[in-house]
């Protein structure tokens, strides 16, 4: 039987960090991951149920000095409705558009999606492409301390991250990409949303004439975490997206992904889809 002894809904980060330092807390914001996981027995409630959804300072999307800060409590719907996200982070916006359903987008938070660390997590792939950093805050020694980690390092396995038990993910920071940078997110599925990606691909680059610069590629659901694909990026960096470059990128992708077979897709099919869909995305880039 679950044994939650205490419920807390702090209003400040200080307060929340304090509670976390005491240990034994289950943290939730939207609840869309925690609730079904608890019902299915995949998550055991700790003694304290900590609702971080009331901490105002974890909300909002803002830009200063070329860095966009997205508060951890920003819902997927809020991301979809942000002109900044839509204008500058197209892949992220697309991933939100493909995210579950309206009801879940209204509740689910960006911080929650990151901490849930699903290999198929929708926002993770575009955030990798955007070189996002996560901001973690905690009060290990009585004072609030903050640290920043690149998202790629933060994710360590299915449902696992470098967030310490006493820490909260407070925000995601994205340096505004260079002028001309555009990004694209592809999620494999038969319907617009309400689906778990069998594979997903994020692609971003600056086009200088016909040449691609600052190429960034990430894949979802082909490894224990969503992953950047440095060899694919290298195969495309500084090149024209011609047949040879595309073929080199596809070969590199085949080496860089390690998909598994599960009820959603076989490893073979995942490989085929990464190949075919990356090819399609690169051909679209070539055709402008």
């Amino acid at each position: 039987m679950s044994g939650i002894e205490r419920y807390a809904a702090p209003r400040t980060l200080e307060e929340a960090a304090e509670l976390l330092s005491a240990g034994g807390a289950t943290v939730f914001a939207g609840g869309t991951d925690v609730m079904p996981q608890a019902n299915a027995g995949r998550l055991r409630f700790q003694k304290t149920l900590l609702n971080i959804g009331r901490i105002a300072e974890l909300r909002g999307i803002g830009e200063s000095n070329g860095v966009v800060r997205i508060g951890a409590l920003t819902t997927i719907t809020e991301l979809l409705e942000s002109p900044l996200v839509r204008g500058r982070f197209r892949a992220l916006w697309q991933s939100c558009d493909h995210f579950a359903s309206d009801q879940i987008r209204n509740a689910a938070t960006l911080g929650g999606n990151l901490c849930n660390a699903s290999p198929a997590g929708d926002t993770l792939v575009p955030l990798l492409v955007l070189d996002a950093q996560v901001v973690l805050a905690g009060k290990p020694n009585g004072t609030l301390a903050t640290r920043r980690l690149p998202l790629a390092g933060f994710l360590t396995g299915p449902g696992r991250t470098l967030r310490a038990a006493h820490e909260l993910l407070t925000a995601v920071e994205i340096a505004l990409p260079p002028a001309g940078f555009d990004s694209e997110y592809f999620k494999f599925g038969t319907r617009p949303a309400l689906d778990i990606a069998a594979i997903s691909i994020g692609l971003g680059a600056v086009r200088e004439g016909r040449v691609l610069r600052d190429v960034r590629v990430a894949f979802g659901a082909v490894a224990p975490t969503p992953v950047r694909a440095p060899r694919v990026e290298a195969a495309l960096e500084g090149r024209i997206a011609d047949d040879a470059a595309i073929e080199a990128a596809l070969e590199a992708a085949a080496d860089e992904i390690h998909p598994i077979s599960d009820i959603r897709a076989s490893d073979w099919y995942r490989r085929e889809m990464v190949r075919n869909m990356l090819q399609r995305m690169l051909c679209d880039v070539r055709e402008g």
């Binding site: 038969t190 319907r191 009820i263 959603r264």
Partner: peptide, 28 residues
Amino acid sequence: ALTENLIVEGGAVKNPSFRDYKLVTAPE
């Protein structure tokens, strides 16, 4: 025809949820 598939392996239902047993949704 297209979306539903109750996966039974070794006598066990492998996808006992709407997440992986796909009913047609309105956009489809």
